[in-house]
Write a protein that binds this DNA or RNA. Structure first.
Lengths: 234, 234
DNA sequence: CACAAAAGGTGATATTTGTCAGGTTTTTGA
DNA sequence: TCAAAAACCTGACAAATATCACCTTTTGTG
C-alpha cells in the first residue's frame, strides 16, 4: 500500500490529531474510515448551503473554508473560518437540525464526508470522544463571545487588526512574513462585519501607519506588539 | 416533609424539566441534590466574575441573570441572558477553564450551585445526559451566530426591536401586555451593543412610531408583525 | 494574446452612531 | 420624608461608517 493510500485511512490521517476524532478507538475509526467519502473542492465552490439537511459532517484535510450566514439585507457575514483538522457541520448533526450556515471553500480543499451515524454512535458510547466534542463546542462558544465583544466594542480598524493577527496566528506566514492565507478585501470585510470600501480604507491606513505591509496581493504584519496595543484602545 | 421542602430536592424540582438535568437518572439526581447549595441572590449582586475559577455550575431556579464580558475600553457587553432552567458556568466547567463571563442578577434570584464532579461524572457515563448537554451547547452556538449576524448587519433600532421581541418571547408579558422582564435602558443598550443615549433615542422612536408602548418603567410591544417586518429591512 | 471579469482603490457625500453636557424624573434608603 | 443616587431624557455636535459613482490594476480564460 502506497504512503498516500495509507493516509486515506482515518487511522493514519494526521488531521485526526487535531480534532476530536483523535479520541476514537481504533475500531470506531475503522468504522468511520469505511464509510467516509473524500472530496476535492475547488476554490469558491460551496460545500453546503444554509438550510440544507446534512447527513453527516465534513472533516477538513486541506484548505480553508468560510462559514457564513446570509442576512435579510442580502449581505453575507462570515461567522468563522475552518481549516485543516476542523470538523464542520457538527453543530447541526448534534442538534439534529438543518445547517444554519453556508460553507464555501476559500482555497482548494480536500474534505472527508463522514455520515452522521458514525459520529452519533460513538457519542453515545465513548465518553472520551464525547468529552472532546464537548470541548470543541465549548471553545466555539468562547470564540463566538469574543467576536460579539469586538463587533460591539471595537471600531472597524481595530477589528481588521484583530482579524489579521488571527490569520497570522492560525494560518502562519511565508518566508517573507506575509500571511499564508490571503483573504480578498471582500472576505475580510465580511469577516469583520463592515463594508468593502471601509475595509479597503482601513487596511490602507494600517499600512500607511507602518503596522502592516502589502506587496501585491500579499499582506503581512510588521509590528505585532504595536498592532496588539492598537486593538486594546491604546 | 412540607411541599417546598420537597421541591428543594432536585428530583422534585420543576426546573429540571427545562434543562439537561432532566436526562439524569434518579440516582445521579440524588447525588446532585445532596451536594448542591441553594443560594438567594439579590438584584444587582454578582454570581461570579470574569476570570474566576468555578468549581461547579449554577442552575437557575428563579430570576434572570445577565452574562457579560468586559471590553478593554471599559464597557460591559451583555452576551446573553439566562433564566429559570438555564445552567450557567457550564462552558467553563466543560472546557476546564476559568469563566470568561461575569454573571449578575437582573432581579432577585434563587440558584443552586452544583459541584463540578456531580456534572462531570454523569457526563462520562450517561450518554443521554451528555447528549442533552451537547444539544444545549449547540443551541448556544446557534444563538451566538444570530447575535453576530445582527450586530454586523442590523442598525441599532432594528437590534432594539429584536431584543424586545426576544424578551417578550422568552419572559412573557403581564396582563396589560407589558414585558415581564424590565431591563434598564443601560442593560438594553449593553445587550444590543450600543451607547445608552442611542438606546434611549431609538426606544423613543419606536414608541413614537406606534410599534411599542411605554408606561412608566414598563415596556410593551404593540404590533409584533410590524416589528418583525421592520427588523427584516422592510 | 486580448479582453472581460474580478479585485482593489478613491473621493464626495449621506447616514448612523457616539460623545458631551446639560437637564428631569423616579427610586431608594437613612 | 427627604436628600442623594440612579435612571431617564434631550440637544448639539463630532466621529465613524456606509453608500454611490467611478477609476485602475490584476487575474483568468477563450
Amino acid at each position: 500500500m502506497a504512503q498516500n493510500e495509507k493516509a486515506k485511512r482515518c487511522e493514519n490521517c494526521i488531521v485526526r490529531q487535531f480534532n476530536s476524532l483523535g479520541a476514537m478507538s481504533k475500531e470506531e475509526l475503522k468504522h468511520v474510515s469505511n464509510a467516509k467519502i473524500t472530496k476535492k473542492i475547488k476554490k469558491g465552490d460551496i460545500i453546503f448551503e444554509e438550510g440544507e439537511r446534512l447527513n453527516g459532517v465534513f472533516c477538513i484535510r486541506a484548505g480553508v473554508s468560510k462559514l457564513s450566514k446570509l442576512s435579510s439585507n442580502g449581505k453575507d457575514q462570515i461567522v468563522k473560518l475552518a481549516a485543516k483538522g476542523d470538523v464542520i457541520g457538527q453543530r447541526s448533526v448534534i442538534a439534529d437540525e438543518n445547517v444554519d450556515l453556508k460553507a464555501t471553500a476559500v482555497n482548494d480543499m480536500e474534505v472527508c464526508f463522514i455520515p452522521k451515524d458514525r459520529i452519533v454512535t460513538p457519542l453515545k458510547s465513548n465518553p472520551k470522544f464525547t468529552m472532546e466534542v464537548l470541548k470543541t463546542l465549548a471553545s466555539d462558544i468562547k470564540d463566538s463571545n469574543d467576536v460579539i465583544l469586538s463587533l460591539s466594542q471595537k471600531n472597524v480598524k481595530q477589528r481588521i487588526a484583530q482579524a489579521l493577527l488571527y490569520l497570522e496566528e492560525h494560518y502562519g506566514v511565508d518566508d517573507d512574513g506575509f500571511l499564508k492565507l490571503n483573504l480578498t478585501r471582500e472576505d475580510l470585510a465580511s469577516l469583520v462585519g463592515t463594508a468593502l470600501e471601509s475595509c479597503i480604507r482601513n487596511v490602507s491606513a494600517l499600512k500607511k501607519e507602518g503596522l502592516i505591509k502589502i506587496s501585491g496581493k500579499r499582506t503581512g504584519i510588521v509590528d505585532n506588539a504595536a498592532l496588539e496595543r492598537f486593538i486594546e484602545d491604546f
